[in-house]
């Protein structure tokens, strides 16, 4: 389980001015196999919470626990394992990819860094499998990010994340910059992978229609920075099943 307890975080709005509270005593847990939707308007703190869960930002107060251990008190080896176990994908995939790196290299690199593959050949083979699994054709492997579409780039980012066999995937508005049909493809890909692998997903969005289609439960960030759980209001006819 991934558990955030009593997270409070504020940002300073200027050198001498007061701070703005974004998260106010927020607690959230995500279990493997679950699809949780996090909804709220722009600026409400969704991405801040995501970054805290991914250990990219240390909150002013509160803890994040993975399998019962405090993430921010882990030793280097523990943090390294955590960064494999919790992967994050972002709204603009092109900003997540090195513009000078070929697609195949972008997916292979973390496999080598985290010793999932021992040799370059193994890494290339596994990267190829991951990209194919995510719907990227071999003709695209040698291209750079500027030579592929937004939808293809998001598939590459998902392939890269999956290579580390994460327990949790945090998807921060993964489809808001994509066309409607590509959005459907990407979300269906994510949900089918989630079902196969049993990982937990936190889907961050401002679109309630997406939440209803994809998630088992939904939490909403309120304007005062608190979190409330809502009934997703699932319509079984339109519920996405993979």
């Amino acid at each position: 389980m991934l558990q955030a307890d009593h997270i409070t975080h504020a940002f300073r709005t200027g050198l001498f001015s007061s701070s703005r509270m974004v998260l106010n005593n927020v607690s959230l847990h995500i279990e493997r196999g679950n699809r949780c939707g996090l909804i709220g308007p722009s600026g409400s703190g969704k991405s801040t919470l995501a970054r805290i869960l991914a250990a990219q930002l240390i909150p002013n107060r509160g803890t994040v626990r993975y399998e019962g251990k405090d993430v921010f008190r882990m030793d280097a080896a523990g943090k390294r394992r955590y960064r494999c176990a919790v992967q994050m994908i972002f709204q603009n995939p092109l900003l997540s990819l090195d513009p000078m790196q070929k697609i195949i290299d972008a997916v292979r690199e973390p496999l080598m860094v985290h010793n999932i593959c021992r040799t370059q050949t193994q890494g290339t083979d596994m990267a190829s499998e991951l990209l194919t699994r995510c719907g990227i054709s071999e003709a695209v492997f040698q291209r750079k990010p500027c030579q592929i579409s937004g939808g293809q780039a998001q598939r590459v980012v998902i392939a890269r994340a999956l290579g580390l066999r994460p327990d949790f995937l945090i998807a921060d508005e993964p489809t808001s910059m994509l066309d409607i049909s590509v959005q459907a493809q990407i979300l269906r890909l994510m949900m089918s992978i989630q079902t196969e692998s049993g990982m937990g997903i936190l889907l961050i969005t401002h679109d309630m229609d997406l939440i209803r289609a994809c998630c088992d439960r939904v939490v909403r960030i309120q304007p005062d920075g608190t979190l409330v759980e809502e009934r997703p209001g699932m319509d079984e006819k339109i519920r996405l099943t993979s």
Partner: peptide
Amino acid sequence: QGLLAAHPRYGLHPI
């Protein structure tokens, strides 16, 4: 028809 079917309200069926 495909564009409409791909919308989340109609089940996210991609073309």
